[in-house]
């Protein structure tokens, strides 16, 4: 099966290529509102369909303390 990678904090998840990014994020238990998907320094829209071997970083947008 063709896979893509989603990196969140110190973890990397392998997810099925062809899947919509928003769905893949939700399946990881992450609320899309709390992250920004970034690839090569650019924001990737949640409607994007994951491609084989691509790597997307999910940047946390929640800061606190």
């Amino acid at each position: 099966m063709d896979m893509a990678k989603l990196k969140h904090r110190d973890k990397t998840y392998e997810v099925e290529a062809g899947k919509q990014l928003e769905r893949a994020i939700r399946e990881l238990g992450i609320i899309p509102e709390t992250v920004l998907p970034v690839r090569d320094g650019k924001i990737v829209p949640l409607t994007h369909r994951l491609e084989e071997e691509e790597e997307i970083e999910l940047v946390d947008v929640i800061s606190g303390g």
Partner: peptide
């Protein structure tokens, strides 16, 4: 402004 908008502003 939401945190997401501000983070997006910085990245862009």
């Amino acid at each position: 402004l939401s945190e997401r908008e501000v983070a997006a502003y910085c990245i862009i």
